[in-house]
Amino acid sequence: MQIFVKTATGKTITLEVEPSDTIENVKAKIQDKEGIPPDQQRLAFAGKQLEDGRTLSDYNIQKESTLHLALR
């Protein structure tokens, strides 16, 4: 499925993911596309910060959802 990640600079990244993917996997995909190390990424959805060990389906993130990326 496709999801979107909006960066602090307003850029939107499109990612191909599975509901079973962990947040860690998603951060690795962002690193592949943007070169941002996962340990510098903070992802949020619906106002909640997402934890590495959880999956997209844990957070009820569905196709075409938009996550927000902040850098630490």
Score class of each variant (00 low, 15 high):
Gly10Cys: 05
Leu56Ala: 02
Thr55Gly: 03
Lys33Met: 12
Gly47Asp: 12
Gln62Trp: 15
Ile23Gly: 02
Val5Pro: 00
Asp39Arg: 14
Ile61Glu: 00
Ile36Asn: 03
Val26Asp: 00
Gly10Ala: 08
Ile36Arg: 03
Ser65Thr: 08
Pro19Leu: 10
Asp21Gly: 04
Ile61Pro: 01
Phe4Cys: 03
Val17Phe: 05
Ser20Gln: 11
Thr9Gly: 15
Gly53Met: 09
Ser20Phe: 11
Ile61Tyr: 01
Ile30Trp: 01
Arg42Ala: 14
Ile30Glu: 00
Glu64Pro: 03
Asp58Trp: 11
Gln49Lys: 09
Ile23Lys: 01
Thr66Ile: 07
Lys6Pro: 01
Ala8Trp: 08
Pro38Ser: 12
Thr12Asn: 08
Arg54Asn: 11
Leu56Ser: 01
Ala44Thr: 13
Ile13Val: 07
Ala8Leu: 09
Glu64His: 15
Thr66Ala: 04
Pro38Gln: 15
Glu34Leu: 10
Leu15Gln: 01
Ile30Asn: 01
Gln2Asn: 15
Lys6Val: 12
Ala28Asp: 15
Lys48Ile: 12
Phe45Tyr: 15
Leu15Lys: 00
Gly35Gln: 06
Phe4Asn: 05
Gln49Asn: 12
Met1Val: 06
Thr55Val: 06
Leu43Trp: 02
Lys6Ser: 07
Ala8Gly: 11
Glu34Gln: 09
Ala28Glu: 12
Asn25Ser: 15
Arg42Tyr: 11
Ser20Lys: 10
Gln49Phe: 07
Asp52Glu: 11
Glu16Asp: 13
Arg54Met: 12
Lys63Val: 08
Ala28Lys: 11
Glu24Ala: 15
His68Gly: 05
Ala70Lys: 12
Ile30Gln: 00
Thr22Ala: 06
Val26Thr: 06
Ala8Gln: 10
Ile23Phe: 03
Ile36Trp: 10
Lys11Arg: 09
Lys27Glu: 01
Gln62Gly: 13
Lys6Arg: 15
Gln62Asn: 08
Pro38Val: 15
Thr14Tyr: 07
Ala8Arg: 09
Arg42Gln: 13
Leu67Arg: 01
Arg72Leu: 13
Leu56Cys: 03
Lys63Arg: 11
Gln31Ala: 14
Asn60Gln: 10
Gln49Asp: 13
Leu43Asp: 00
Phe45Ala: 04
Ile3Leu: 06
Met1Ile: 10
Phe45Thr: 03
Lys63Asn: 15
Lys63Phe: 08
Gly53Trp: 14
Leu69Ala: 03
Leu56Lys: 00
Leu15Ser: 00
Leu71Pro: 08
Asp32Cys: 04
Lys33Ala: 10
Leu67Lys: 01
Leu67Ser: 01
Pro19Asn: 07
Thr55Leu: 08
Gln49Pro: 09
Asn60Asp: 13
Met1His: 05
Leu69Arg: 01
Lys29Val: 05
Ile23Glu: 01
Leu69Pro: 01
Glu24Pro: 04
Gln41Thr: 03
Met1Asp: 03
Leu71Val: 13
Ile13Cys: 03
Lys48Leu: 12
Val26Glu: 00
Thr14Pro: 12
Gln31Asp: 07
Gln40Val: 10
Ser65Arg: 03
Gly53Lys: 14
Thr7Asn: 11
Ser57Thr: 13
Tyr59Asn: 03
Val26Trp: 00
Arg42Ile: 15
Ile61Leu: 03
Gln41His: 03
Ile3Tyr: 01
Pro38Ala: 15
Leu15Met: 05
Ile36His: 08
Leu15Tyr: 02
Ser20Asn: 14
Lys11Val: 09
Gln49Met: 11
Ala44His: 15
Thr55Met: 11
